[in-house]
Structures are given as structure tokens and as C-alpha cells.
Design a protein around this nucleic acid. Structure first.
Lengths: 131, 131
DNA sequence: AACAATAATGATAACGATTACTGTAATTAG
DNA sequence: CTAATTACAGTAATCGTTATCATTATTGTT
């Protein structure tokens, strides 16, 4: 039991996640996929976002302000949240650096560290220009 | 306008945040402060947690599963979320390491990085013992 | 190609966490 | 002490998310 079955809706959701870089909320995904499936349900979006996250084909990003964001890039990488405009951007940090951080953290910690996710805060280039 | 006025409730909430290390949710704070103020309102707890966060006397920690946690330690430090038992623990990472990460991140990023918060995932020592 | 089994859907209700509102109480400045 | 203002408790409302359920779509089998 529990065999996965194909669905156009899920495919569309996954495709959108993989081709956008705006780290959409569930509602943003809903709005977008609605263009191709005008009567898709918000519940379907949530169900599939969680499913994709569970099987490792998407990542859920928690932010302190507002709803979770989703990302189709599943390789370890980090994010930047602009404190002025609220945009969530990708932030590349090479693998060595990520692993180095995990290693440093493990030194003073009495457990196993399997992964980490860093959220950087500051001002994005657009907001700097405007000020 | 906007002058801060003293309140016993806020003091109690702040004191609890500063003396516990369990990174309580708003509801946990509510339960605790209720012992001293039996008819405090949950709304008051939220109002003050947000206020303390805004004036920099508390920190809000977002986790991908469930409600936000609050922390009375405002110095930069990081956290560890056990994927087995769900506990959120402090994780010390010396200042140099934190700054080093921010510096590395800034190299490939077109904006200003002011701070960062890393959430580590893995298994805590208690869960390792049990397995 | 029809069928049975079962997973996925859309619609909607329910839920938990958080915020907004309101009239009253506490704090503070004059 | 008084007046002004902020904070409070209590409650309703909002928001993001999950659960329920009858119907539809997919898939493996005859």
C-alpha cells in the first residue's frame, strides 16, 4: 500500500518549483498552477507540497515572518531574507563551507549532526540601491 | 507616543525566557506564566513576546514543523533540532565561526549580510542512547 | 477493452496558532 | 490627584494548514 500514482496536478506543481527561484509560499504555488488547472484546490497544493517534501523532491523553508516557503532545489544550499523588502533569495555557499560549519558545530555538540540550514539576514542589492 | 510602560506580566515573561533553556512556544510561556498570573491572557503573552522580539530582548526561532519558539538569549548563537524527538537545543558555535560563515556567504552575494541563524538537524545524544 | 483496486482530486469543514478588537485596569507624568 | 496613555483580560476574527468525503483518475489485471 501507499504506491504513488501519477497526477497532472502534482507534475505541474513540481515543474513550477523546479523552474522558479522565487521560493513561493503554498498560496503562490496555488495561484500559479491555477493558470493551467483553473479548478485545482488549495488542499491539493498543500497535499502535494508535503508529499514532494517527504519524498525529497522539494524542501520546506521556515521563516520567522509568515508562512513556509518551498524550494524545488533539493541540493543543500542556503537562503537570504531581506529585512527591508522581505524577499527570500538563494545564497550559494560552496559545499566545503557548509560541511565545515557542520564539522565546527559537531565539535562542541553531544549528538550527530546530519545537515544544517542557514538563513542569512540583511539587505538585498535592490534595497541598497533605493536607499 | 509609543512610550513603553511597565507591566508585571511582561516582566514575568521576560524573566522566564531568560532563565529557561527549553526554547518555549508561546503556549508554553503562557502555561508557565499562568502559575504567577492565573488569569493572564494568551493574547498578552503573544503581544509581549512580539514586543520583546521587536525591541531586541528576545529572539523568535522558526522551525519547519510547528509553531515558533522564543529565546531570551539574544547574543548570536545557533540551534539544533532533533529529528527524532523534536527537541530544540542550543548549539554553541564560537563567534569567529559565525562571523566566518557570514564572511564566506558575503563573498558570493550581492547585498549586505548583517546576521545569520543556522538550524542544525540530526539526532540528539538522548535519542542516540535509546537506539 | 472492460474491470477492480486504490490513490488523487475538488470542495468544504475543522483545526491550531496568531492577531485584532473592546471595554476596563494599571502605570506614569504633571 | 488627576489626566493621559499604555497594558490588560476576554473574546472574536483571521490566517495558514490539515482532515474528511464523495467523486474522478490512474494503474495493473483479465
Amino acid at each position: 500500500m501507499g504506491t504513488l500514482k501519477y497526477s497532472k496536478q502534482r507534475e505541474s506543481i513540481k515543474h513550477y518549483l523546479m523552474t522558479t527561484d522565487e521560493h513561493p509560499t503554498a498560496d503562490m504555488v496555488y495561484m500559479h498552477v491555477k493558470k493551467d488547472f483553473p479548478n485545482i484546490s488549495l488542499g491539493t497544493v498543500y497535499r502535494n507540497l508535503n508529499l514532494l517534501t517527504d519524498i525529497g523532491e522539494a524542501v520546506k523553508i521556515a521563516t520567522p515572518d509568515g508562512g513556509d516557503r518551498f524550494d524545488g532545489r533539493v541540493e543543500p544550499h542556503n537562503h537570504f531574507l531581506c529585512t527591508k523588502c522581505g524577499r527570500l533569495l538563494d545564497l550559494e555557499l560552496d559545499m566545503n563551507s557548509i560541511e565545515e560549519v557542520n564539522r565546527l558545530a559537531a565539535e562542541n555538540f553531544d549528538g550527530i549532526i546530519r545537515s544544517s540550514s542557514t538563513l542569512f539576514y540583511g539587505e538585498c542589492s535592490d534595497c541598497i540601491k533605493k536607499s
